[in-house]
């Protein structure tokens, strides 16, 4: 038996698209949808996958990344599934060439354009879940923009540790009202949602929610007036910004790991960004030498 283009039947896609439209119309609002069964476990990016399948057409170019890398297991599997079920689409590793970018836990370093769509996979859509267990009450709190208890959590963090310790899933206020869980992107990526030119769609398959950050929409992390939000600090003990050991850039989000010699090294988390930098560096070198 053959599956329709995009695996889901047209009614399922229509429902997801309606959800998307509503999510765009009410920035940051979590639109419930039915979230179909996908041929993979919930929690493996089925929310993002359904958004991509509902949005993609035969002439689109797709990029799938997992924590910045095109070659991670989750990204590879999702990509081959979409290639299999959407004949005619192109896939790419290049951020620039992609029409649709489905991503797990990162936003590409290179700013996206108005023509591009970013789809983020979301495990926990509701930022309030850490302070309120009842969904009914959470919905009420969202509708009244009552986020004081989230702020109390930040307050307690500052009291205990002297700073806000959230490393990812930083609660972010969209368009001055709804606070979203921007999926487990690092803090580094939160300011890059703010007034971005592209549309960002967030899909939670297990929790059955879709929400959106439309183009050029305000996305502000929750903060205190006198203790502003800050992104990860990549300076070493001497105060120098660490560089990627591979492409030597000093303006990207870095992953820390231990190499075969047992030394701690840093490398771009966005592999396409790193490769692009490396290529242009080698091109310059060649030109200089040649």
């Amino acid at each position: 038996m053959s599956y329709p283009f995009g695996f889901m039947d047209e009614y399922a896609k229509k429902e997801v698209r309606r959800g998307i439209l509503k999510a765009i119309a009410i920035p940051g609002y979590q639109v419930p949808y039915s979230s179909r069964e996908m041929p993979m476990g919930r929690g493996f990016g089925t929310g993002g996958l359904q958004l991509t399948l509902a949005a993609i057409g035969p002439n689109d170019t797709l990029k799938v990344i997992d924590q910045g890398s095109d070659d991670s297991v989750n990204a590879v599997n999702l990509r081959s599934f979409i290639e299999m079920t959407c004949p005619g689409i192109d896939t790419t590793a290049s951020t620039e060439e992609a029409d649709i970018i489905q991503s797990r836990h990162r936003i590409p370093e290179k700013p996206l354009s108005e023509d591009q769509l970013l789809v983020l996979q979301v495990p926990y859509p509701d930022a309030l879940v850490v302070v309120e267990a009842s969904e009914e009450k959470r919905k009420q709190m969202h509708s009244e923009a009552d986020y004081s208890r989230l702020l109390v959590k930040l307050y307690e963090d500052i009291v205990k540790f002297g700073e806000i310790t959230l490393s990812h899933r930083y609660p972010t206020r969209i368009n001055g009202h709804y606070v979203i869980d921007p999926s487990p992107i690092p803090r580094w990526d939160v300011p890059r949602l703010h007034r971005a030119a592209n549309l960002t769609l967030l899909g939670a398959g297990r929790e059955k929610k879709i929400y959106a950050v439309p183009p050029y929409t305000a996305a502000e992390p929750l903060e205190f007036d006198d203790i502003p939000f800050r992104v990860e600090d990549f300076r070493d003990e001497h105060g120098h910004r660490r560089r990627c050991q591979r492409c030597s850039t000093d303006d990207s989000f870095l992953d820390e790991f231990i190499n075969e010699e047992g030394d701690t090294v840093y490398q771009c988390s966005d592999s396409d960004y790193c490769n692009t930098r490396l290529l242009s560096a080698s091109a310059i070198k060649e030109r200089c030498l040649g």
Binding site: L151, F224, D226
Partner: peptide, 8 residues
């Protein structure tokens, strides 16, 4: 915080 005092 409920009454919008946001200065730590």
């Amino acid at each position: 915080l409920m009454s919008d005092m946001l200065d730590y």
